[in-house]
Design a protein around this nucleic acid. Structure first.
Lengths: 234, 234
DNA sequence: CGTGCTTTTGAATAGTATCAAGGCCGGTGG
DNA sequence: CCACCGGCCTTGATACTATTCAAAAGCACG
């Protein structure tokens, strides 16, 4: 809670607040915000808990997970620096999903009341948020299409490209900047971990990727796009 | 284009504008808005076209459709009175989906520039829109979970309940207020029309529904919930 | 009373999940 | 330093679910 990085010294150029708040409002937020550090695997908020405010990722990566039937899960979204988590309009709402850190993560938390004040006085900021949600909605709609229409191979090719798009990869060798387990890739695509393993094996044979320990190296991104191009990915 | 219903005489209590705009702004919107009537099957906007503004449904029902591979489609959302269609942040964007009327429909269209003005001067309205999108995002995430984890029978039970939730049903006999083809129900759930036909047959045998001509009558809603309850539907 | 479209039903096939066993790797403790 | 343990990953065999293809039945419309 202490050891806050002040908004002024924060170098996240993806933060909505910094982009669109007037400086007196940044001061107010500065005063109100709570900063939280998480390690990989830590829960940021939990499905079913009450919504108390909004979370901005200042540093790190997270997954947004929905519990399904029989211990299955679905990763509905991946989030990284600058992304917004956990905002749900009405304050009596409960979270329909959980957010879990995928790496060491720093989060800025702003409570509902402060947030409301900020919105009412910073229309451009509110507008940015409209656009953020509108964009996320579109992305979710598109992924929904993928998940219902693609076969297993296509889903996994798409997942790899999706992970790269959100979290990026090493410029030199193409290693994805996050390491997910087979089960997590399965939860991202709605297939079984066994299928993920099989397909990754296939992809390696076809020289599209190289598995190295925990990580995955994309060595032929075009080849992966080729697999999913008929869905208009990219 | 003529024959406009003015915002003042419009009795839609679901309209964001009426809910949160000051009356001088309602006058401005009144002046700028374009009202369009569509028949069932008409296209409201088309995937790939440029985004020029925002559409509010004043009356009627619509489906939001994404083209998939090999002539498959996915209905990503159903929309009814008061819902917002087609808003996509940046004005250079193209529509990622099409909107198609499911019944006779009246739409109010507001262009991007007017909309921007309205937002900058009506923070509560903008906030309502944030909440609308946030809610739609959540609903889409939840349906995404359903579509990836449910089997065919479950998907179709869920689809029937979903349709009822959005469009409603006759209070007396439970007939859904919209009539979709088997193919449309299939596109809503990501299965084939044949499966929809088979499962509806099953549901009728089990006295959960009655098929009457084009329409579907839900006679045992609890029974349908029972099928999908392990996913937390409802 | 055809004609064309949607729906229903059936049978064959393909794709996935499930179950089970064995291998690999990193961490821990002797 | 090495052996062991546990978790994750891989691979194979099997069963099942859903798609595909095909054909017939139902229905609206001219």
């Amino acid at each position: 809670m202490n050891n806050k990085i002040s908004c002024k010294e924060c170098n996240s150029d993806a933060c909505f607040i910094k982009q669109q708040c007037s400086s007196d409002w940044i001061d107010k937020i500065e005063f109100k915000k709570i900063q939280i550090n998480h390690q990989a695997e830590d829960c940021i908020f939990r499905e079913g808990g009450y919504v108390e405010g909004i979370y901005f990722i200042q540093h790190g990566n997270a997954k947004i997970v929905a519990r399904g039937a029989e211990n299955r899960e679905l990763i509905v979204r991946l989030a990284t620096v600058g992304h917004v988590l956990g905002h749900r309009g009405s304050r009596d709402d409960k979270y329909p999903v959980s957010a879990i850190a995928l790496s060491d993560t720093t989060i800025c938390f702003i409570d509902n009341d402060t947030l409301y004040d900020v919105f009412m006085n910073n229309p451009k900021l509110t507008l940015l948020l409209v656009e953020f949600y509108s964009r996320e909605l579109r992305k979710t709609e598109i992924r929904m299409k993928y998940l219902t229409q693609m076969n297993v191979k296509e889903k996994i090719a798409e997942a790899l490209l999706f992970i790269k798009e959100v979290f990026g990869a090493d410029d030199d060798d193409g290693t994805l900047n996050v390491s997910l387990t087979r089960q997590e890739i399965a939860d991202l695509t709605g297939v079984t971990a066994e299928q993920v393993s099989r397909e990754l094996g296939e992809f390696e044979k076809k020289k599209l990727i190289i598995k190295k320990g925990r990580g995955i190296k994309l060595i032929d991104e075009k080849g992966l796009y080729e697999i999913v191009k008929k869905y208009g990915v990219g």
